[in-house]
Design a binder for these strands. Structure first.
Lengths: 294, 294
DNA sequence: GTTCCGCATGAATCGATAG
DNA sequence: ACTATCGATTCATGCGGAA
């Protein structure tokens, strides 16, 4: 039993400079718990990846997803953040073709989460509104994958809050008394009943005030999926690391991480922000529960 | 100049009993401004619609969308409300295949709106969260289509919404008094400056406690798209009428409407709720602006 | 006349049981 | 083995009755 004993854990972050199509071959089979990535969208980041044309996107990505399928654990998950561009007035179909292609490759297309961007970039076009959402495609190797739903529970809606107001007032009084009579347990029971599971729509604002560089997504986005699909000490991989948002999120959550980046500029930037090895002493009940659940 | 003059308009609602695959052939080429519909999803509503299998869905729908392509005006829009269900742990791919099929048929896939359902169906599963969104696929015949963005503008933020509530209460009182002091104009001026264009994410709750029948979507959903893509006097078509939500929305917004329904039960229910012909006298400024914009 | 509370009800999904 | 049906799970909403 580990409760009230200390447990040391070493968390590593590995950075790799190069094209993930090649560098992924270094990684061992079945060694990654979560792949979270946002690859360059078609026709964007032309300077780095040569601007993949929409009609060539699937052909370009399939060899990479083949490697990801190899390195992912059978219980692991691949979350792909992607959104098709508007080309000549139409939404491109390469994302749909990619899903169909990856299914032929052996992936299961388990779910499609929606990231609702609350404060997306303003703009006005005569025949189109602002694009305020992106796809977060969940792929798996098998139908049995790890998912830790309790870690991302959210407070109940306004409806319940107003109706349970009476209960909560009573509860506050007892909490203030702090008489150690076991009311703490009651409080947490009450809290449990006021937390509900989220849906497959994730509401997050985009980060608009970055110091040096612009990240494709806010840190909270990978954090949500890292908490949902991994435990402390697990391995998170981002083959299109960019400014390193996924790795920073993984490190803050005490997960091992591997990042691959083709641009030396980004690589060095992340290198200067990430500690390659961190040591932690776990001794709280939360960690005990996390470890024993595994 | 039409201001302060009266303009009469006759709004018709036409109900057709039968299979839309056949009945659509009656409609004239290029005669519809907006198709808004929510066909039975694959394997759902078995008791009413027989439950089309996912693998047969595209084959079943393509002849219908062919007719819709024929009857739609070149400047018109087709909005398709649909969502794939989970089959054996995976999301079905028939919606993506349908989009690809309709593009081959000649449709332009212009945009995908997200309907975020605030009160989605409850449930808890080990590997999945509740599904809280549906697709609203926008298809067009040509890149030049009518869109009236100003009609769906929203208050800028929460602060604006709360202030708007107070104003609108005041406004109601004044409206009831009918004193013609021009206060309404002031309100609309103030609103204009505090209204912004919406995004492609629509937030609406489903209507779940209907007395007689259940509608697939809240009336506000077709209303939003009817206002966005048509003007008063235009023609709205719903080939899968169901309980008639689209037609009721169209009638309330003074649009002509055509509804096709295969089930006599639903047909008669809508027949009893919808007036076949309504006459309106337009004389307020709002209508003046709408007409002159045309 | 308000506000408050109880209750039924959904385009769902999984896993077990039965043919 | 493969399909068909059933029970359990879960939460925002609006209606109606009560304080």
């Amino acid at each position: 039993m580990l409760y009230n004993h200390g447990v040391y854990m070493e968390i590593k972050a590995e950075l790799i400079l190069g094209d993930c199509k090649d560098k992924l071959k270094r990684l061992e089979d079945n060694s990654v718990d979560l792949v979270f990535t946002s690859p360059p969208y078609a026709d964007s980041r032309k300077n780095t990846y040569g601007g993949i044309k929409p009609e060539e996107y699937v052909e370009w990505f399939i060899p990479i997803s083949e490697q990801l399928l190899r390195v992912l654990k059978p219980t692991g998950t691949f979350v792909l953040n992607i959104k098709e561009k508007v080309v000549d007035g139409e939404r491109s179909t390469y994302v749909m073709e990619l899903i169909l292609g990856m299914r032929r490759q052996g992936w299961l297309w388990t779910e499609e989460f929606i990231w609702h961007k609350k404060n997306c970039y303003p703009g006005k076009w005569p025949n189109r509104f602002r694009d305020a959402w992106e796809r977060l495609l969940q792929f798996n190797k098998s139908k049995k994958f790890d998912m830790y739903q309790e870690t991302v529970m959210v407070p109940m809606g306004d409806w319940a809050r107003s109706r349970l107001r009476n209960l909560s007032e009573t509860d506050k009084i007892r909490d203030n008394a702090r008489n150690g009579s076991g009311f703490g347990k009651n409080v947490s029971n009450w809290l449990d009943k006021n937390m509900v599971y989220p849906t497959n729509v994730v509401h997050l604002a985009t980060e608009c005030s970055n110091k040096n560089h612009s990240a494709a997504f806010p840190k909270e986005l990978p954090k949500w999926f890292i908490k949902l699909f991994t435990q402390e000490g697990d391995v998170v991989l981002d083959p299109f690391m960019g400014s390193g948002t996924t790795l920073i999120a993984a490190q803050e959550l005490k997960r091992n991480s591997i990042g691959i980046e083709i641009l030396p500029e980004y690589y060095r930037m992340v290198e200067s922000e990430i500690k390659p090895v961190s040591c932690y002493l776990f001794e709280d009940q939360g960690s005990y529960e996390t470890l024993s659940a595994k």
